[in-house]
């Protein structure tokens, strides 16, 4: 049996005396679509930051495909095949849509810090960039600076940059936040298609998205996972009802 895509074991994160994350345990199997839900301030984004190397855990261990990654820098984790998006759009504002995606393709295609190659004459980079732009429906906006895109377009670009490296583990932080219903539907279809055959970890507030998309769901409350299971199990779990879904219902 192959190792879990992501294995979080007894992770704790304290800022000063405040424990934001306490005894966090999470396991995401290969190829699984895993949603993390929980009320505001539960530590969902912090969990993302801990796994992706944005911040280091105070204690505990994070494994990616069986290898320990906690303590590594974000780019080292990214190079091992984990890629994440951000809740607040985090693109390269002055660069064109095309450049944004292309920059995200460069490391994975092995061009790294090359200063002896013309970036415009790398066929595999061009093809991959074009394919991703096509996937995220932004081909017609390729020369527009990312900072001038509409909000929904920036969110799509955010997803495009995240998947561009071809990472096998993709983490999306509230990809549909602030979108209209129609935009959300489009984004979900996009996510479903682009993460085909990959492991997906998603933080999401929209319950229809969560229950429609996820194979398994973890519920995070006050920095601790109180339940993990299939959507059906989570729907029935009394602890979850009490802590989260019940609260949402009224």
């Amino acid at each position: 049996m192959s190792a879990a895509a992501i294995e979080v074991r007894a992770v704790e994160k304290r800022f000063g005396n405040v424990g934001i994350i306490r005894d966090l345990n999470l396991s995401v199997a290969q190829g699984e679509r895993h949603a993390i839900i929980g009320p505001n301030g539960a530590g969902k984004s912090t969990t993302f930051n801990l796994i992706s190397g944005h911040i280091r855990p105070t204690s505990g261990e994070v494994k990616l495909n069986g290898d320990v990654i906690s303590g590594l820098r974000p780019f080292e984790i990214n190079r091992r095949g984990l890629s994440r998006s951000f809740q607040v759009t985090n693109v390269f504002a002055r660069m064109s849509v095309w450049e944004n995606v292309r920059c995200a393709v460069l490391w994975a295609t092995g061009h790294r810090y090359a200063f002896w190659k013309n970036v415009d004459s790398l066929p595999e980079v061009r093809e991959r960039t074009a394919r991703i732009l096509d996937d995220i429906h932004l081909t017609h906006r390729r020369d527009v600076p990312a900072g001038l895109l509409t909000y929904a377009e920036q969110r799509e670009l955010e997803i495009g940059i995240t998947i561009a490296s071809g990472a096998t583990v993709v983490m999306l932080d509230e990809p549909t936040a602030g979108m209209s219903n129609a935009e959300t539907e489009r984004a979900v279809a996009l996510i479903r298609r682009l993460t085909e055959g990959k492991t997906l970890v998603i933080v999401e507030h929209d319950m229809s998205v969560v229950f429609g998309l996820a194979d398994r769901i973890s519920v995070l409350v006050y920095g601790h996972i109180i339940a993990s299971g299939t959507p059906e199990e989570i729907r029935r779990d009394p602890k979850v009802k009490e802590a989260y879904l019940g609260e949402e219902a009224h």
Partner: peptide, 17 residues
């Protein structure tokens, strides 16, 4: 090109390798 990306957003650059 990556220099431009670092200029625009050094944080995000870390998450593209």
């Amino acid at each position: 090109r990556i220099s431009n990306a670092v200029r625009d957003n050094p944080e995000r650059v870390q998450f593209i390798g």
